[in-house]
């Protein structure tokens, strides 16, 4: 029985690690903020869930088990909320939704100027002439790499 539980742990944690890896690759390789968020939230939630599931047989019932599951639930909640906020900001371009914890005049030029428009999923042609490589790792909604200069709306 002990062996079976250990094997279950190993398999589940490795499966979780695989989803983390997949999510990271998606984060680095996908062309725009929305698809990257998709990769991140989906894979991280599932990855963390599998890691937690795998660790459950190794914990003391009930306190540690409940703590682990709670951590996963809050990571889900936080991930979904932040993903939603970032997607909102990226989609609207001029939104201040992501700015709620920032000072009122923290709206940056890129965010508040309506002459910038989000270019949705225009994958490869766009990728070749934008997304400088130094930005690949950190494409946040405040970052201007995902914003194209467009006609005034």
């Amino acid at each position: 029985m002990k062996i079976a539980l250990d094997i279950f742990t190993i398999v589940a944690v490795m499966a979780g690690a695989f989803f983390f890896l997949a999510g990271t690759v998606g984060l680095l390789r996908f062309p725009d903020p929305l698809t990257r968020l998709h990769a991140l939230t989906k894979a991280d939630n599932l990855g963390l869930g599998l890691v937690v599931l795998g660790l459950l047989p190794q914990t003391d019932w009930p306190l540690d088990t409940i703590k682990l599951v709670t951590i996963w639930l809050f990571a889900l909640l936080a991930g979904a909320t932040v993903g939603q906020l970032m997607a909102c900001a990226a989609r609207r371009g001029g939104s201040n939704t992501v700015d709620t914890l920032l000072p009122p005049n923290g709206n940056t030029v890129e965010l508040s100027t309506p002459t910038y428009q989000i270019v949705g999923r225009q994958p490869f042609a766009a990728e070749t002439n934008r997304v400088p490589s130094r930005h690949r790792d950190a494409d946040l909604p405040l970052n201007s790499t995902a914003l194209h200069r467009g006609p005034p709306t």
């Binding site: 809050f74 909640l77 936080a78 909320t81 939603q84 939704t97 709620t100 000072p103 009122p104």
Partner: peptide, 23 residues
Amino acid sequence: PQLRSHADPDGILAYFARVMAPV
């Protein structure tokens, strides 16, 4: 202090704060 909210009081962040803050 300058910290001020622009968030929609019915938006996702308000929901998150309502759930998260008590816990």
